[in-house]
Design a protein around this nucleic acid. Sequence first.
DNA 1: GCCATAGTTAGGCATGTCCTTAACTATGAG
DNA 2: CTCATAGTTAAGGACATGCCTAACTATGGC
Lengths: 116, 116
Amino acid sequence: MPNYGGSLDRVFQALADETRRAMVQRLIRGPVSVSELARPLEMSLPAVMQHIQVLEACGLVRSEKIGRVRTCRIEPDVLRTAEDWLAEQRTSWERRLDRLGDYLLDDPGTPEQGSL
Amino acid sequence: MPNYGGSLDRVFQALADETRRAMVQRLIRGPVSVSELARPLEMSLPAVMQHIQVLEACGLVRSEKIGRVRTCRIEPDVLRTAEDWLAEQRTSWERRLDRLGDYLLDDPGTPEQGSL
DNA sequence: GCCATAGTTAGGCATGTCCTTAACTATGAG
DNA sequence: CTCATAGTTAAGGACATGCCTAACTATGGC
């Protein structure tokens, strides 16, 4: 069972914004400069910068400045961390359903309750 | 390719809080009353109620009041929606890495750039 | 009917988020 | 050097979030 630290807070928070999800989807296709990232977005450059900072703060994105161009790239590990947490919940749910099914087949007396 | 609507905003937002993730984990184990949900949490009941409302608003949780007890249960579909989005990003990333590998093996001239 | 239990509503406060404009720095082209 | 490009910093405004307390309603046990 992974640890997840407090980092899930920041990752899910980062992904809870349409603009930042669009940025992630763009960066999945390959590294890109700040102004290239900003181009399809209808907002000021400082606003874009702030989104990038949120993505960097949670480790979803890394960036490097060469000359006057900052190039951003995705960091897929953190994306995986979030996916893992969700998968863990889903499998817990599925295991519970299985146990519940077995139980009901065995002794169809009392309905479900609590941890079972 | 799924649609995801604007619902991902609310789901990720809901999951971006430690307390609400703890609630989800508890509810995965089975349906539970409001005060039972509140017990392990160090906050007032109204605060717990507000968290439940957030979880219900994004469809992660459904609840039903019988007598004076409100019983909450998880709604796993929405959890799956979030997981699907993340999986989609990851597989896009993996496919891109594959294409990149093929390309570099084929003609190791120009480095990666843009959509490739 | 009386009281404890379970939940709800209302109001308020501190902090966080998302965006803006204005002014600024640094780099590359000519 | 001069100018345009690429990005950055600072300050502030509008609104959302997460929590609280106080006061309230509804139900069930006796």
